[in-house]
């Protein structure tokens, strides 16, 4: 072995050593970053627990808000949240999923669809209060829906819409073209291909998108305050489900849609802006309920994704 090549060898070893050191450095930085993020999240949750756990009880979930902090509860708030979210999911799915399918499967790829695509992606980034202003102008005044559950559902539905359109499109894009060609080669029409293949195989991704969008929307306060959701509601909207046959009532359903509402984050906002410390505890307890709801929804998304991924694979 010549002298030159020994030197080259040594240089190489030195280089490797240096790169290995960079490996360690980067790993350490990564661990620190993850640690900071986790600490931050845990600090928030721990803080909520310490403040709110004392107030968390069945009574808290079954009482209306009150001017006495120890009697106050979030019954109207969580019921309102569920009604509004049901509306939001309904509107965003019936508008967003077909729009996503159309854009991905039917629309020709030209400048117009590119503009639409850019717009939808930008809509996802529009601040939520803008949606509130839009809803105030259109739903509350122009269409006369008032400060109702219907308006709340539509507003949050529109907020979720771009996320769902994007999730639908991404999910459809993941279906290999060869699967569509297989269906077409057997004489399937476009609609049969969409119905039998595109929708079933993308359902998991779409569902995950819906739940993720919903768990963002559930915590929204600004657009609902903008449309005039109340902060003090001491009654429940009429239930469309009845104890006796036929168990559902259209009139009560319409009444429900028209009734004013509040949601958990608005209730929290209301309590936190009061001077008494006891109300702050109530806000923390409500925050715990909201986090629990979000966690349940996210776990559901994870579970569904796992279920569907196992069924559909390429």
């Amino acid at each position: 072995m010549s002298k030159g090549s020994v030197e080259a060898q040594q240089h190489l070893l030195y280089r490797i050593k240096k790169l290995r050191f960079m490996d360690t450095v980067f790993e350490a930085l990564g661990i620190i970053a993850v640690f900071l993020v986790m600490t931050f999240i845990f600090a928030i949750i721990l803080d909520l627990f310490m403040d709110g756990l004392r107030r968390l009880s069945l009574g808290f979930l079954t009482s209306y808000p009150s001017r006495f902090p120890e009697k106050a509860g979030i019954l109207s708030a969580w019921v309102g949240t569920i009604y509004v979210m049901a509306g939001a999911v309904f509107w965003s799915v019936i508008l967003g999923v077909p729009a996503g399918i159309y854009l991905e499967e039917y629309a020709r790829k030209n400048w117009l669809t590119s503009i639409i695509e850019i717009n939808i992606n930008n809509l996802a980034a529009v601040p939520s209060i803008i949606y509130g202003l839009l809803a105030l102008g259109i739903f509350v005044y122009r269409l006369g829906f008032g400060e109702s559950i219907l308006t709340g559902g539509l507003t949050l539905g529109f907020l979720m819409l771009p996320v769902i359109v994007v999730a639908t499109r991404e999910s459809i894009k993941r279906i290999p073209q060869s699967i569509r060609e297989a269906a077409y080669s057997m004489g399937a029409t476009k609609w049969e291909t969409v119905r039998d293949h595109v929708i079933p195989y993308s359902a998991g991704g779409i569902l995950t998108g819906v739940i993720i969008a919903a768990s963002r929307a559930i915590g929204e306060t600004a657009p609902l305050i903008t449309i005039g959701a109340l902060t003090f509601i001491a009654f429940l909207p009429p239930s469309p489900i009845k104890a006796d046959f036929p168990f559902v009532s259209w009139d009560s359903f319409v009444e429900m849609l028209k009734s004013p509402f509040t949601v958990i984050p608005i209730q929290m906002f209301n309590w936190i802006s009061r001077p008494q410390k006891e109300f702050h505890e109530n806000a923390a307890a409500a925050g715990l309920v909201l986090i629990a709801l979000t966690l349940v929804m996210n776990s559901l998304a994870l579970f569904l994704r796992y279920k569907v991924r196992r069924r559909v694979k390429w």
Binding site: S178, I179, E181, A182, S185, M186, G187, T189, R311
Partner: peptide, 19 residues
């Protein structure tokens, strides 16, 4: 084309069964 595809089947380069 649907009527043609019902009479002329096709097998592709990569196996592409439906999931």
């Amino acid at each position: 084309p649907i009527s043609i595809r019902m009479r002329a089947g096709m097998v592709f380069q990569k196996p592409n069964p439906f999931p």
